[in-house]
Nucleic acid binder design. Structure first.
Length: 422
RNA sequence: GGAGAGUUGUCCGAGUGGUUUAAGGAGCACGCCUGGAAAGCGUGUAUAGGCCCAAAGCUUAUCUAGGGUUCGAAUCCCUAACUCUCCGCCA
């Protein structure tokens, strides 16, 4: 959620930055400003009333004490009248306030200056590309055939136990998963991240904190009996650690890493592009999260990008980095880099990481602040990125490293695997 | 799941309807004192808002949360969350 302060004091800049999402939000902003003003005038009126009531109550107390009951009764009547007036004002104010927050919730984050104006994925900028086209033999197969040929993933079995999109990893497939998770975690630890193992069910407040609620309610699995949600990403519990927290400036930046399974309903997406491991309801991901000083956040975003880059290079997978255009960015993001791994047999790019700076958008909802040099509380910036999401990495590895004699796994994984080849 | 007890500021802790404008203590910060430190003394010590160009000042709300009773609620009533103890169940 954008801060009212920004909308009020930097109106022009907010509208300008929002326009990069290829939608004009100026009328919404105008409405917010109007509602804000209306709310404030009601509030002033209400508070003056309350101040009077408080004074009267005190006077009545003193009159009672000195035994002047009749005078007290007169003041009582006055007080009752004031109270009615206050109730009306309070109601009116609450009504305006609700409209205001509703409107605020609907406004996406303002893209950073570096983000290009654009509407669709075609407008995204490729900022980096690395690796060579794998030389595959003529019978090279897509990963969903390899997984069944080598008994790595059983989609049918998952279908039986749970449903489509919940694969069962078996044998070397399961061990590859475990190796990747450990590799990603160790790499993050070496880069200075602190490991967290969070709950994978979260409450409503956490959903609101990172912005999954109310807008993306349909994306999460919801346990209605206990009103808990399955996390769609470790970002939700790990960032919510800092909900309602005031940090010391010297604690920043906080760098956390966590592995969790992730659950996404992905309602309405079926067909060829969800084949095999391309899109699942449950998948594994190692996530890096940073809580940053506002002046340092973009530097740290680049640092995170470098970290993910390093992972891809060690895995030896051809990949590219996109800086998303305004229209393709997530609702809460101010700037996002997507990493795409090349899938040699499918001949297409698969998104394997999304690394973003949310600036104060999440921090505002989370109420995560730090005490700055003037001892004032200031909102932090939050950042996160996948480092990395497993299924599509597995797909790329299997497809790109396949030979007629089997699949040669990346050297960096050997110590984690206990075997080198499938 | 059942029964009981609890939740007050950074922390401890007093407080059963009106000088609570949240006592007192500890911690922390600053100052005095000191050769330096401790002790001692003094001052300060939350959050979110509103009025205001701003500051100063004034003001509202916040004693786990949300409702209610009352002229007036930390205090009384209702609901919920959490913590502790005992019982039950359990990897």
């Amino acid at each position: 959620m954008l801060t009212l302060n920004a909308i009020r004091n930097q109106t022009k800049e907010v509208i300008e930055r929002l326009s990069k999402r290829a939608i004009d939000r100026s009328s919404d902003i105008e409405e917010i400003l109007k509602l804000d003003e209306a709310k404030r005038s009601k509030q002033t009126e209400l508070e003056q009333n309350l101040a009077k009531s408080n004074m009267l109550a005190k006077e009545i107390g003193e009159l009672f004490k000195s035994g002047k009951k009749e005078e007290a009764d007169i003041k009582k009547e006055e007080s009752v009248k004031l109270k009615d007036a206050s109730k009306t004002l309070e109601f009116e104010m609450a009504e305006i306030e609700e409209k205001l927050t509703q409107k605020l919730y609907e406004i996406p984050n303002t893209p950073s200056h570096q983000v290009k104006l654009g509407k669709t994925p075609e407008d995204n900028e490729v900022v980096f590309e690395w690796g060579e086209e794998p030389k595959l033999h003529k019978d090279a197969k897509p990963h969903w055939e390899l997984t069944s040929q080598y008994s790595l993933v059983d989609f049918e079995l998952g279908n039986k136990i749970t449903g489509a999109g919940f694969p069962v990893y078996t044998g070397k497939g399961a061990r590859l998963q475990r190796a990747l998770i450990n590799f990603f975690l160790d790499e993050a630890l070496n880069a200075g991240y602190y490991e967290i193992q969070p709950p994978i069910l979260v409450n409503e407040a956490s959903g609101y904190g990172t912005g999954q609620l109310p807008d993306k309610e349909g994306q999460m699995y919801h346990m209605t009996v206990d009103n808990l949600y399955c996390i769609p990403t470790a970002e939700v519990p790990i960032t919510n650690i800092y909900r309602d927290v005031i940090l010391k400036e010297e604690e920043l930046p906080i760098k956390n890493v966590g592995y969790t399974p992730c659950f996404r309903r992905e309602a309405g997406s079926y067909g060829a592009h969800v084949r095999g491991l391309n899109r699942l309801h449950q998948f594994d991901k190692v996530e890096i999260v940073q809580i940053a000083h506002p002046e340092k956040s973009y530097e740290l975003l680049e640092e995170m990008v470098e970290h993910v880059k390093g992972l891809m290079m060690k895995l030896g997978l051809k990949f590219r980095i996109l800086r998303l255009c305004g229209g393709d960015m997530g609702f809460a993001s101010a700037m996002t880099y997507d990493f795409e791994a090349w899938s040699g047999a499918q001949q297409k790019w698969l998104e394997v990481s999304s690394t973003s700076n949310f600036e104060t958008f999440q921090a505002n909802r989370l109420k995560c602040r730090f005490k700055n040099k003037e001892c004032k509380n200031e909102l932090v910036h939050t950042l996160n990125g996948s480092a990395l999401a497993l299924p599509r990495i597995v797909a790329s590895i299997l497809e790109n490293y396949q030979t007629e004699e089997g699949i040669n796994l990346p050297v960096c994984l050997h110590p984690y695997l206990g075997f080198t080849k499938i």
